[in-house]
């Protein structure tokens, strides 16, 4: 087997193992909370007999290990359980929410990742001169403001004052692509501003680090232009550190956008989670926690795999 394939398989296996461990931690954490689902359904005034009946009916009287494997088995077959607050099937409810979140995250990523890398390359090209200072200053200001402030600023100017875009990011099933895009444009702008600085600064730092290498001098002495040197000779050697930061930010776009969703009243995973935490809807909290963990681990594995593939020493062994 090719050594790279071995490494990739190892990484993926390790990620699955990690996900299993995380699922156990989520389950145990939720199980350790005072009160259980039966208590939550019947309320504080329920009789012990009623509680015991409901627990037997829901299988809550089984030992925790059995319940964990039942839950895990359900997850693997696509059954995430039933919400206790409204009795709906969690999987179908989440499916739509997750779709919305991924839609928002994907557009933010499609715009922010190339833009951040481009700005990072330009900042590295003009290191210490005014374009570098302008880019660094602007992106750092954007990241220094809390997301909701950026959100409200964007709302005030683009939606209220100039009335360019809708202030509420309402999406619903069956909506057309262009309408959908128009609806999410403001939250996408906010998310781009929030994640841009981190990725751009890492790109700049990684490029400047590589620019110290002897092979950059070789490229300069070939008479290549500064941008050719950066793009063809520096960037391929800076991919690994950049990819890691990009993936952390992509994960943030999926799991960390609660505030932005609330500001724009966007029906995504974050709002869904917050709503059900408030209602003590434990099955939903478990399911969402597991999905967030899976996204995080998945993107980090992807970062590892890309870093491995970007390394010619691993791709082409002696």
């Amino acid at each position: 087997m090719h050594p790279v394939l071995t490494l990739v398989v190892q990484r993926v296996a390790l990620g699955l193992l990690l996900l299993l461990a995380v699922s156990a931690v989520i389950f145990l954490g939720v199980a350790a909370l005072p009160g259980d689902t039966a208590q939550a359904i019947l309320g504080q005034s329920a009789t012990p007999q009623a509680l015991a009946n409901l627990r037997a009916e829901m299988g809550l009287d089984q030992p925790p290990l059995t319940r964990y494997f039942q839950w895990l088995g359900g997850v693997l077959t696509g059954d995430l359980g039933t919400s206790i607050s409204n009795g709906t099937d969690i999987a179908s409810a989440i499916g739509q929410r997750l779709g919305n979140t991924l839609f928002l995250a994907a557009w933010a990523a499609v715009i922010s990742v190339p833009l951040a890398i481009l700005l990072g390359l330009v900042a590295a090209r003009y290191n210490g001169r005014w374009p570098d200072k302008l880019i660094s200053g602007a992106t750092l200001s954007a990241i220094s403001l809390p997301e909701f402030v950026v959100g409200y600023l964007v709302l005030y100017f683009l939606a209220v004052k100039w009335q360019l875009f809708p202030s509420v990011a309402m999406v619903f099933p069956g909506m057309g692509m262009m309408d959908r895009l128009n609806a999410v444009i403001l939250p996408v702008i906010v998310l781009v501003l929030v994640v841009l600085a981190h990725m751009m600064r890492m790109t700049r730092a990684a490029i400047l680090n590589v620019m110290q290498s002897a092979y950059i001098e070789t490229a300069e002495l070939k008479g290549l232009s500064p941008m050719q040197v950066i793009w063809r000779h520096a960037f391929p050697n800076a991919i690994a550190p950049v990819v890691n930061v990009v993936m952390l930010n992509l994960a943030y776009l999926v799991v960390g956008v609660v505030v932005v969703e609330v500001v724009f009243v966007y029906p995504g995973m974050g709002q869904y989670l917050v709503d059900h935490v408030a209602k003590r809807d434990l099955p939903v909290v478990q399911a969402v926690g597991l999905i967030f963990a899976a996204v995080y681990i998945g993107l980090n594995i992807l970062a590892d795999v890309i870093s491995i593939l970007a390394n010619p020493r691993l791709r082409h062994p002696k």
């Binding site: 002897a214 092979y215 001098e217 490229a219 300069e220 002495l221 070939k222 050697n237 010619p312």
Partner: peptide, 19 residues
């Protein structure tokens, strides 16, 4: 540079781009 004059460095191992 590279057209009229070219350069051979002391450490070729460092002067070639590994990627």
């Amino acid at each position: 540079r590279g057209r009229e004059v070219t350069y051979v460095a002391q450490s070729a191992a460092a002067a070639f781009n590994p990627a």
